[in-house]
Design a protein around this nucleic acid. Structure first.
Length: 567
DNA sequence: ATGGTATGGATCC
DNA sequence: TGGATCCCCTACCA
């Protein structure tokens, strides 16, 4: 418990002192634009410095006049070209003469101002100030501390001398974002806005109909083929026609989006987003008839919801995991957020991402470099196993779509690694990957291509997006294609995670820093296929994006909780 | 209109 | 090893 408290204290401290510098710096340098303006004259300054430097190089130290004369005599060729040969009979260059004259003129000017006299007037005479220190030393009187006076308040005595009840113990500092109570949470009770209960009931009624129509099977092969038999060109012909309109932009969660998904239903467009402070927002995107705004926000978590996905086996199950250390499943039929997995509350192991292993089990990547195997069928919220994989924090975990015993991890240590979970040791022992590729900086995400797992798509902080060839997972991973992409989003935005079309292996989508703000679509060979932008309706960076599995729908999420639906 | 503000992660020491 | 410091440089909102 004491550890918990100290960690909490640290956390609070971190948060409050944060980056005190930032505000200071900002005050000094003004807005972002102002910094850019400053950068241009900086180059001029540099070049100026260079010219002054050449002069300084010749005379690195301040010399007395005499020394300078000597120096000038011994180094006759050290001056700049046009003054090289201009020496008089006494060996002093005209340049040097002019310089000495300037020094003298300046000195004359300052003395004419009478500054030194004024300085002397202001200064008390040193003779008066400094008494002789010779002879007897003054004996220092020992310092007698005054008796400490304690207020009546601290003595817990009232003015008439009656004793007061003792001070109640200080309440433990409240954690700013405590974990939600464990166990199932009713959706209606975790609504962000009270009073939206009717809207909640309406939406749930609609969604029940939606799920019964049967889009809840992973093996829905008919749809899979309609989406994936078309060539890239054929597909892009329709896909690139998508547009954004004002009605399809909405704030779905109050803060920065950390996770995003889109429901596979073909009848209704339902997008979901998880945010920084544990909110999960559902948005029933209006079709041609736009009635209400259709946004409902719940708070099943208390810290960033870094991964949020509808189960491929049951689309009414919305899984979410969070930095608060819990993984929940929102059941849209039972209207609860059930707790599936929770780390020990003492060690604050942040849950980063998860992927589905089977209808009931998942792999969860964690901050401490471990991957947890979680099964819903077992009682309790503990993991079945924990595999120790990396020294540094993990980001994403991705299960091979065909060989489900193989999974890939992306880590802060710059690696994308393949693992065989049948061969992993449990209980803290360090494991070795089947194979691994190293990036220069941390890797934000690495996902298997959704149908065959032949490729791994990775986004990394060394400004690259890579497609690795993982068609022979028992052999080493090789780079299939890779290209430069500005992945530096800065401090306030969620990092990019390029993501596949959920039913195609020939294209993926990624956010962009480019202006106008845009969402980019690339082929698996890293060729630019399309760019979606709309200056009227999209004015911010969409860090996360998702594509509908069977319809031409693209949703982009920005860092203030807004979703933009192109369709 | 515009400046205040939020506050993650890598790296340094 | 972990606290301090630096760095990235947006979007919203009062």
């Amino acid at each position: 418990m004491s550890t918990t408290r100290s960690t909490r204290a640290k956390r609070t401290l971190n948060r409050t002192d944060g980056d005190g510098n930032t505000s200071l710096k900002r005050k000094r340098s003004g807005k972002g634009d102002a910094i850019k303006e400053e950068k241009i004259p900086l180059q001029e300054v540099e070049s100026n410095q260079q010219t002054t430097c050449t002069v300084i190089k010749k005379e690195p130290t301040i010399l007395t006049d005499q020394q300078q004369v000597v120096k000038a005599q011994t180094e006759p060729t050290s001056q700049s070209s046009d003054e090289e040969d201009l020496h008089d009979e006494d060996g002093i260059s005209t340049y040097e003469k002019r310089r000495l004259k300037n020094i003298k003129d300046n000195a004359d000017f300052f003395s004419s101002l009478g500054i030194s006299e004024m300085k002397n007037e202001l200064k008390p005479s040193t003779a008066k100030l400094k008494a002789s220190s010779r002879g007897l030393k003054k004996e220092k009187a020992p310092r007698v501390p005054l008796p400490r006076r304690i207020s009546l308040r601290l003595l817990r005595v009232d003015p008439s001398g009656n004793s007061l009840p003792p001070v109640p113990l200080l309440p433990e500092p409240l954690e700013e974002h405590p974990r939600k109570p464990s166990g199932p949470l009713e959706m209606r009770k975790s609504l962000l806005k009270e009073g939206s209960l009717e809207d909640h009931n309406d939406l749930m009624a609609k969604l029940k109909g939606l799920v019964q129509k049967g889009t809840n099977s992973k093996e829905d092969s008919s749809k899979k083929t309609t989406a994936s038999t078309r060539t890239t060109e054929q597909f892009m012909k329709g896909f690139s026609k998508m547009r954004l309109v004002a009605e399809r932009v909405a704030k779905v969660v109050p803060n920065r989006v950390f996770s995003l998904d889109i429901h596979p239903s073909e009848d209704r467009v339902l997008v979901v987003a998880g945010d920084k402070w544990g909110a999960v927002g559902l948005w029933d995107v209006p079709g041609r008839e736009h009635l209400t705004d259709g946004v409902l926000t719940y708070t099943p978590h208390s810290r960033p919801v870094n991964c949020l996905r509808f189960s491929p086996w049951n689309s009414s199950h919305l899984y979410s995991n969070s930095y608060d250390g819990t993984l929940r499943v929102g059941d849209l039929q039972k209207e609860i957020f059930d707790e599936v997995y929770a780390t020990s509350e003492d060690d604050y192991n942040l849950l980063k991402n998860f992927d589905f292993l089977s209808a009931s089990s998942l792999l969860v990547s964690q901050q401490d470099g471990t991957v947890a195997l979680v099964d819903r069928r077992t009682k309790g919220v503990e993991a079945e196993h924990e595999y120790n994989l990396h020294f540094k924090s993990l980001r994403t975990v991705s299960v091979h779509p065909v060989h489900t015993h193989i999974f890939a991890t992306a880590s802060n240590d710059g690696t994308v690694s393949l693992w065989d979970h049948r061969k992993l040791k449990v209980g803290g022992k360090k494991n070795d990957p089947i194979s691994c590729v190293q990036h220069a900086k941390g890797v934000s995400s690495a996902y298997f291509s959704p149908l065959t797992g032949k490729y791994i798509l990775a986004t990394s902080m060394d400004n690259k997006i890579s497609v690795f060839d993982s068609s022979a997972p028992e052999k080493s991973l090789t780079t299939f294609k890779s290209f430069k992409h500005d992945n530096h989003v800065g401090r306030w935005l969620t990092g990019f995670r390029a993501s596949w079309h959920p039913r195609r292996e020939d294209l993926f989508v990624v956010g962009s820093m480019k202006r106008p703000r845009q969402i980019e679509v690339y082929s698996n060979t890293c060729e630019d296929l399309a760019t979606f932008y709309d200056p009227d309706n999209l004015g911010s960076v969409c860090s996360l994006n998702a594509i509908h599995p069977t319809r031409n729908i693209l949703v982009g999420a920005n860092s203030s909780g807004r979703l933009h639906v192109f369709m």
